[in-house]
Design a protein around this nucleic acid. Structure first.
Lengths: 274, 274
DNA sequence: TGAATAGTGTCTGTGAGACAATATTAT
DNA sequence: ATAATATTGTCTCACAGACACTATTCA
């Protein structure tokens, strides 16, 4: 006996199958400026990420990435991430990019939850005072890779969060590694994985995309831009080399940044290409 | 009134919330050899992907990527992909890598289904005659990018599948594009998206990872390896340049490949580094 | 022998790394 | 004047692109 497609769809009942919940977790990254006492010195920069304090079980009172459950009937995962970002930062139009889908069986003690994580990038100047009060920016004060271990330290000025991951060989054919949480006292769920995966991704993409300009204000000096690169890559760059690489991606304006107790700097804009 | 964590988890009932279904879709990629009449000529190569014919609604009798529903209680998405690959190809130990999670609201007419896609790479020599009989290899006979359109043609020797995608500007800040299906008669679901996303990813990763060796047999000539690169990148490479680039990633063996009506070629192996 | 592929040599231009030198400001 | 950053000049080295050349097989 043959059914038509219409009949088939009508008879199809989702509830006959096991279903599950999905969440999104958002790694919101920005670059913050440290105050300086010396009037001549430029503000030094740190990479920082947004964490929120959990108010309920599981992981009650622990810090975690902003995130929440997907409404399967009305939202895409990106919609969901936008909604959560809006709640935590009061901002819209934040750059979002899908990072990875984490799905180990026991990552949430409540039930099976698969979580698709997103990277979000923002220029910190956009959001002073707009944060939800359970949210806090943590500077990435350490990000060390030694042997196969990655040590990360986060600091919001009052609390320090430390965790360690190991890179474990997964595929022996080609050398492919996966991260495993080794030591973690303070962060909820598998969020150390999300953070490290995201920071690595950002490091890679900053080299071959224009992603970095999502973290910059409209006008910026090349020195500022270079600092953002240095903070993300975790190493110093040589000025002339940096300027050569970046030259085609920025446009000089006739504005200057003055007042630094040293030579003023030309302000540039992002050079959007078609 | 305070609950303990234990009480909280006990009282938590997943079924109070809307849930959804997840699937995996697998883009299994390999490189096939075309027979040649000239005894001197080496076999030319084509990139090919595995499709299966749907036996039921929706998209009955259309081709699609191998895939299936996740069992949320017992499987990770990768487990699920492995299970499906085993069903379709009778192979285990295939290289798998998470590609992207597709989640538009109407991608499946039955219900809300979020699908995490995986790239799988295999050396075709491993699987002659092992295919499930609803599965078939399609050569990628065309992959053209013109303006903002991508035209793909797949051919299994009996049927030709054609589809077109458009790259549509998504973020105006940084120029970020997303693919939109423009024209598609033959492929089920949003699988044209998966295919194009996956082929682009492979193209990128072949340049900076050792991923390609998952598609190679244990012993191969540099000519064969170069052909695989050329087929994936869609362009010819210069011999000396290729040999320089690849040199550190392969090891010469004392085996030779002879019988080609021309100078024999040294067989190499993948050089696994720690 | 010759068609075909395998493999090497080498010139050239580009571009990154490195370091030096000059320019300009606020105190 | 000086500390600090801004900006440019230029040398060198590594390496990819390009092309030419030699080597070797088997019908």
């Amino acid at each position: 006996m043959h059914k038509s497609e219409e009949e088939f769809l009508k008879a199809y009942n989702v509830k006959n199958f096991e279903q599950l919940s999905m969440t999104t977790d958002i790694l919101l990254i920005s670059v913050s400026e440290e105050d300086t006492d010396n009037y001549r010195k430029n503000a030094s920069k740190k990479m920082s990420i947004l964490l929120v304090k959990r108010t309920d079980y599981p992981y009650k009172d622990k810090w975690c990435l902003p995130g929440g459950f997907l409404n399967p009937l009305t939202e895409t995962l990106e919609d969901c991430s936008k909604r959560i970002l809006k709640t935590e930062t009061n901002l819209e139009n934040i750059y979002l990019e899908q990072l990875y889908t984490f799905d180990s069986l026991k990552r949430d003690p409540r039930c099976r939850v698969v979580s698709t994580s997103y990277i979000a990038l923002v220029d910190k100047n956009r959001l002073n005072d707009k944060l939800n009060n359970n949210a806090s920016w943590f500077d990435v004060t350490k990000y060390q890779e030694r042997d196969k271990d990655i040590l990360v330290e986060l600091d919001n000025g009052q609390e320090v969060i430390l965790f360690t991951l190991s890179k474990v060989l997964k595929e022996s054919t080609t050398n492919k590694y996966e991260y495993v949480i080794k030591d973690n006292n303070s962060l909820a769920f598998d969020h150390p994985l999300v953070i490290v995966t995201g920071l690595e991704r950002l490091r890679n993409k900053i080299e071959y995309t224009d992603i970095v300009f999502n973290m910059m204000p409209e006008y910026f000096t090349l020195g500022e831009l270079q600092q953002v690169y240095e903070v993300i890559l975790g190493k110093k760059l040589l000025d002339p080399a940096f300027r050569r690489i970046i030259a085609s991606r920025v446009v000089k304006t006739n504005k200057m940044k003055t007042g630094g107790g040293h030579r003023p700097s030309v302000l540039f804009k992002y050079n959007k290409k078609m």
